[in-house]
Write a protein that binds this DNA or RNA. Structure first.
Lengths: 345, 345
DNA sequence: CTGAAAGCGCTTACAG
DNA sequence: CTGAAAGCGCTTACAG
C-alpha cells in the first residue's frame, strides 16, 4: 500500500497498478487483458482474475494517461458550422449512442457565428487534443484546415458533405438528389411554377447550389415549368419580405422548396398571416425532418436522410480508417434522401 | 534536436520543451509564463521571449499531459436527463461560448432514455475523466451519485434544479414561481378553470410538483377558480387522448399550462384538429421559449429563464468553487422566470 | 529570480 | 507465456 506517495490530488480512484496487485499479476498483463490485446496470450484463468479485480475495485481507465501515452485521445470531435438546430442535436444524440459501446467520447463544437480568428483558435485547440477522429460539416473545415489537422497528428477527418472531396473521406448527403426529389414531388402535385429559398446567410446556405441544379434538371424536362430563386433571411420579417417581393403578380411560384425545415417554419407562419392557404394556394416543402415538423399545422412535408444512418456511417468510417482498412464501398455511396409526405404539399 | 527518440506517433506538434529551447529558458519557465502563474516572478523580457517562441512554433498545450499531471482535466461535463430538445441545445451553445475564454472544454452527455445500468456506466466514465466540474440537471444525478463523483475526485458539481439541494451547489430555476406566474396570467386572461399537463414520462416531469404547488397557491386565493391535472404522453395521440378525456363536459379547463413547449406543440396541433380555437376556446401556455415557438400559429406564449444567464452562472459558480472562494450570493439566488406573452393565451 | 528533477497513469517494445 | 522499464508532455515542490 502506498504510504509516503506525495499525492497531488485526492485520488481515491484505483489505478492499473492497484488492479495488478490485487490480481497478483503485472501491470502489463492488466493492460493487455483489459484492452483485449491479442498479440500477447494470457491464460483464461489469469484473464478472469484480472477482470474480477478490476470489477471489485471499480477500476476505470484514466483517459488522459492513455491518451498521453498513445499520442491520441478517445475523443471524436464533431464540428458544426451551422446555426443551432434541432436537426443537428438529433444527429449528435445519434452519434453519442453509436459510440457508447466503442468507448469513444464524442465532443460537439459549434463554430457557427464565430469570427474567423476565433474559428482558427478553436480548431487549433481541437487539433491539440489529438482526437481519434473529426467529423465535420464540409463548410466547417477547408482543405487547408484538414491538412493542418493531419500535420498536427489528427489523421482521421470525415466530412459530411453534399459531394465527395478529393482530400478526405466523406459521408455524401447529395443535395442534388434532394433538389430532383423536391421538383418531382411538387410537379406531381400539379404545380408548374416552383420556387427555391436561398438563405441569405452564407454559412446556412450550404448545398443550395446542388439543390438548385437538381431542381433545374427536372424543370428542364417539363414544358411550361419554371423555377425562381427566393432569397430569404431566417426570421418572420424575412419571410414576409419574401412573400411581398415574390408571391405577388401573375406566374408567381405556387410551390416552394424552403431549403430546410428551419426556413419552412417562419415561411409557413408568414403565409398564414397573409391568408395564403397551405397547400392549396402555396405548397411548402422542407428538409431535415426536424422533430417539430409533424406537430405544426399543416404538418410539414420534408426531405431527409436518416440521422441514425449518418451517425453509424461516420463511426464505421472512422473505425475503418483507424485500423488502416480500406473503407467499404457501401460507406462511401451517397446516402439517398427520402421524401416524407405530410400536409404542407 | 531529437534524433533517436523512438517516437510512437507522427507528432509534428511542438512541446513545451521546444518552446523552452527556442526561447533559451527552462521548461519550468515556459509553464509558469504560459499559465500565468504569479507565484514565481519572471522578468518581462523573458516573458515576452517565451510568448514569442510559443507563437512562432504554433505551440498548443497537450491537454492530456496537463490533465494527467494535475489530476484534473479542462473538461466541464454537462449531463442532461431530458429528451433532446431545442432548448437544451441552445443552453449548451450558450455555455460553450461562455467557456471559450477560460480554456475550458464543455462536453455534453445525454443520459435520457438509457437503461439505469448504462447510466451508471456513463457516469463512471464521466467521473474517470476527472472533469474540472460537472453541470447536471437535478434528475440526472442523485445525491448518492454526487457523493460518488466526489469520491472519484470530481469535487465541483453544479445542479440545475428547481430548488436548492443540501449536498451541492445549485442554479435554482424555481418551478414554483413558474406555476404562480402561469396561474396569474391565465386568471388575468379571464379563465377560471385551469389545467396543468403532467408528462407521463417520469424523467420529463421534473419540476411538475413545484409548478402544481405554485398554481395551487394562486388558485386558492381566487374564489371559483379550479385546477385540474392533465396526464399526457408526448405525442399527437397522447394530446388527442388528453382532449377527449379532459376537455369535454361542463366545467372543463379552458386554459392549460402545458408543462413546457415540447408538450404545448402537439397539444396545439390536436386542439386545432378538434376545432378548438386557441386562445378563444382554450388558452395554452408553455415553458422554455424554444426557438420555434414564435413561428407556429398561434405563436406560443411561454415562461422562460435566460439561457445566457444560466450558462454564465454555471461557469462562474464552477470557477468560484475551484478557486475555493465562497460563492457570491447573487449566484445562488433563484433565477426568476419571465413571462413572454405571444398569441396562444 | 531560474532550473533540474520527480512523477501523474498508462502502453508497449523488449528481455527473460 | 509474464514482467521490468522507458517514456508520452506536462506541473510544481525544491534547491540554488
Amino acid at each position: 500500500m502506498p504510504e509516503k506517495k506525495p499525492r497531488t490530488a485526492r485520488q481515491a480512484a484505483p489505478t492499473s497498478v492497484d488492479v495488478a496487485r490485487r490480481a497478483g499479476v503485472s501491470q502489463a498483463a492488466v493492460s493487455y487483458v483489459l484492452n483485449g490485446v491479442q498479440r500477447t496470450h494470457v491464460s483464461q484463468e489469469v484473464q478472469a482474475k484480472i477482470w474480477q479485480a478490476a470489477q471489485e475495485l471499480g477500476y476505470s481507465i484514466h483517459p488522459s494517461a492513455r491518451a498521453l501515452r498513445k499520442g491520441q485521445s478517445d475523443e471524436i470531435c464533431l464540428i458544426a458550422d451551422v446555426p443551432v438546430s434541432a436537426h443537428l442535436f438529433e444527429l449528435f444524440a445519434a452519434i453519442q449512442q453509436q459510440t457508447f459501446s466503442y468507448n469513444l467520447a464524442p465532443v460537439l463544437y459549434v463554430s457557427h457565428g464565430l469570427p474567423p480568428q476565433q474559428v482558427e483558435e478553436l480548431l487549433r485547440r481541437i487539433f491539440a487534443r489529438r482526437p481519434m477522429g473529426i467529423i465535420a460539416t464540409a463548410r466547417s473545415m477547408t482543405e487547408q484546415q484538414v491538412a493542418r489537422a493531419r500535420q498536427m497528428g489528427v489523421e482521421q477527418v470525415v466530412l459530411v458533405s453534399a459531394e465527395p472531396a478529393t482530400y478526405t473521406s466523406c459521408i455524401v448527403l447529395p443535395s442534388y438528389e434532394a433538389g430532383t426529389l423536391a421538383a418531382q414531388h411538387l410537379l406531381e402535385r400539379g404545380h408548374h411554377h416552383l420556387g427555391l429559398v436561398h438563405p441569405d446567410d452564407a454559412a446556412a446556405a450550404y448545398g443550395f447550389q446542388q439543390r438548385l441544379e437538381g431542381m433545374r434538371a427536372i424543370i428542364s424536362q417539363t414544358p411550361g415549368a419554371t423555377l425562381q430563386i427566393l432569397p430569404m433571411h431566417l426570421s418572420l420579417s424575412g419571410a414576409r419580405a419574401l412573400i411581398e417581393t415574390y408571391l405577388d403578380g401573375p406566374g408567381h411560384p405556387t410551390a416552394i422548396y424552403a431549403y430546410n425545415d428551419d426556413y419552412a417554419l417562419p415561411l409557413l407562419r408568414a403565409l398564414a398571416d397573409r391568408k395564403f392557404r397551405v397547400p392549396e394556394d402555396i405548397a411548402v416543402l422542407g428538409t431535415d425532418n426536424v422533430s417539430f415538423g409533424e406537430f405544426i399545422q399543416p404538418a410539414l412535408t420534408t426531405i431527409h436522410a436518416d440521422n441514425q444512418a449518418i451517425g453509424q456511417r461516420a463511426i464505421e468510417m472512422l473505425l475503418a480508417l483507424r485500423s488502416g482498412q480500406a473503407i467499404p464501398a457501401e460507406l462511401t455511396r451517397p446516402l439517398q434522401p427520402r421524401l416524407l409526405i405530410r400536409e404542407s404539399t
